[in-house]
Design a protein around this nucleic acid. Structure first.
Lengths: 199, 199
DNA sequence: TACGATGGTGAACGTTCGTTCATGACTTGC
DNA sequence: GCAAGTCATGAACGAACGTTCACCATCGTA
């Protein structure tokens, strides 16, 4: 009965976002229908198909359910005039607490956060006090930043290859290259970095 | 055939976390059973009940499904020096747990993630492609890294003070200091940084 | 005015879901 | 060695789910 409006899906999306903020979950078609005022589940199904085509939701890898994409969480920037070509930004929603974590961590069970000591990686933009995201038991290749175990201590270095042997290269000319005799024990590969600026 | 182990649920939880990292969803009991090697859904149901009692998952407000709690996303923080015996000691026993998002974001409603363009802050260890955590509407003082609006574009610079006026200092000698005429429009203050290393 | 595209209806269908309960294997303490 | 508690099994059941299809209303364009 209402006048057809091509922008109506935007309103539906907003309501779905609100629901997600509360329940952290895309609900069933039945509940979507109730949310939007549809009388049939089929309408909800079609709506979700449209939202999927627009890139707001997607199927899980196992094709079990709908989950939101990153675009689902994007918010328009009202107060600031951003012209075309301007920087896109990702704004955290109210209760959205898990975005950064998901951005950085692929395999939680193998992931450890390791605080950085010293300035031996300063040229790679890794400072003292930073936390590096380390994925253990991951195949390391030359060029990766790795956490190695040298003299029973963690060492963060760049993995290099020299005459067929692995070496540990600091990213600071003030430090020497480490050429381990015997087997090099790699604890894990650095897959991310987190830094907090103090107040 | 397996010996009963009171800590087995920890292993189950790890597998569930890995699944969630991939699918962003707590799966059905059926799939949990497949994941864990259970032969019956009832076992999965009981496992989830145990995890809920331990505070790792909870029901949605609508009581429709299981969703992870914040504790579900806690990551181990490695101890600094690891002694002989190996890095296995890090897991579980020592090392505190913490949340990356909580570590970086204080006020979600005012916090924005902004991708970094260019290399004008390279000497501060801020690289192109990094994401900076920006807290809007925060009082900026000299020495802070700020996102300012210059010519309708976002610019990431260090806030400086020169003759009682605010200036924007790049952290790269190849770039000039910006001395804005009139009011300097500060979008927000950089409170954190996130970097992901590609595979 | 006619037509195709879009968006919602309503009923039917088979599948998957969570729950329940009786049963059994195993561990731990008395 | 026995009881209590824990953890998984396996089958059964009804409820909720997603899908499909024919149908109708509305809108924009030809």
């Amino acid at each position: 009965m209402p006048a057809a409006n091509p922008e109506r899906d935007g309103d539906y999306l907003d309501r779905l976002r609100d629901y997600y903020a509360e329940n952290r979950r895309i609900p069933s078609f039945q509940r979507i229908a109730a949310l939007m005022g549809f009388a049939s589940k089929a309408a909800a199904s079609k709506l979700v198909d449209r939202l999927a085509a627009a890139g707001f939701v997607e199927r899980t890898p196992d094709d079990d359910a709908w989950v939101p994409t990153t675009r689902f969480f994007e918010r328009p920037l009202a107060e600031v005039a951003v012209r075309a070509g301007g920087p896109d930004m990702i704004e955290g929603t109210q209760g959205e607490l898990f975005l950064i974590d998901q951005y950085l961590v692929r395999q939680p069970s193998r992931t450890v956060m390791v605080p950085v000591k010293g300035d031996s990686m300063i040229d790679a933009g890794i400072h003292e006090g930073d936390l590096v995201v380390v994925e253990r038991a991951k195949a390391a290749k030359a060029g990766d930043f790795v956490v190695a175990i040298v003299d029973n201590e963690f060492t963060l270095k760049e993995l290099g290859l020299e005459k067929g042997r692995f070496i540990l290269k600091p990213c600071n000319p003030a430090y020497p290259v480490i050429r381990p005799q015997g087997e090099l024990e790699v604890f894990g590969v650095v897959t991310g970095l987190v830094r907090r600026y103090r107040d």
